[in-house]
């Protein structure tokens, strides 16, 4: 549910980074946090365990500036990837305007990717949301790892992207693909508020 304030011309959108444990969701937010000037961001909040795994969520508020005369703000969340944090994932997903699915490109993580992707759809359904109507992009992270450890993007596309949503290969630790992913989901989320597509989904 994007919040649109017509009086003050402000828009606030919630974007959730979803994916299996250790796929790089928090790393995406850390990279963004590191790149964005301080006047455009709030404090990054991480509710993490002692081993640096996300316990509840990471949260990063961003001030995107003015778009079509609206002051536009994004709230970026991550969910904990580990299977046993299912309830928390569901809670964080509540009210999301867009989802970035961060897949781990390593071959041995394929099953976890598929399971997490299914989990995403199930949780959206539990919130009464048709997954096909939610802006979604997929990021194939860790594409910088040696070729023998990862699956090629084409194969990952076959396995995960049956909806044909925008997808990006990335190395979230060093930055490539992070910006493009955020740009991609931003565009989809904001497009829903534009006159040509509003109510169309």
């Amino acid at each position: 549910m994007s919040l649109v304030n017509y009086a003050t011309r402000e828009i606030t959108c919630k974007i959730v980074y979803y994916g299996p444990g250790r796929s790089g969701k928090t790393t995406n937010l850390h990279y963004i946090y590191g790149q964005v000037p301080s006047d455009r961001k709030g404090q990054m909040v991480s509710l993490a365990t002692q081993t640096d795994r996300t316990l509840f969520f990471d949260f990063l508020p961003l001030d995107l500036g003015t778009i079509s005369g609206f002051t536009t703000r994004f709230q970026l969340y991550t969910v904990p990837g580990q299977v046993y944090y299912q309830a928390t994932r569901k809670l964080v997903l509540q009210g999301a305007d867009g989802v970035v699915f961060v897949a781990d490109s390593q071959s041995r993580q394929l099953a976890e990717n598929i399971e997490s992707f299914q989990d995403l759809h199930a949780n959206l359904a539990d919130h009464g949301v048709d997954a096909r109507g939610v802006p979604l992009v997929i990021q194939y992270n860790k594409q910088d790892l040696p070729g023998d450890l990862i699956l090629p993007v084409a194969e990952l596309e076959d396995q995960l992207n049956f909806r044909g949503v925008p997808s990006y290969s990335a190395d979230a630790l060093h930055g490539p693909g992070v910006f493009e992913t955020l740009r991609g989901i931003s565009e989809l989320v904001l497009r829903r508020l534009s006159p040509t597509t509003a109510g169309g989904r």
């Binding site: 828009i11 000037p37 455009r40 079509s68 740009r183 508020l193 534009s194 006159p195």
Partner: peptide
């Protein structure tokens, strides 16, 4: 949520994201 954003918002989005990412 009535329509709010102009149809051709992409240019502004790209510009703002570019500013954010230096």
């Amino acid at each position: 949520n009535a329509p709010a954003i102009a149809a051709d918002f992409e240019k502004e989005l790209n510009k703002n994201l570019a500013v954010m990412f230096g």
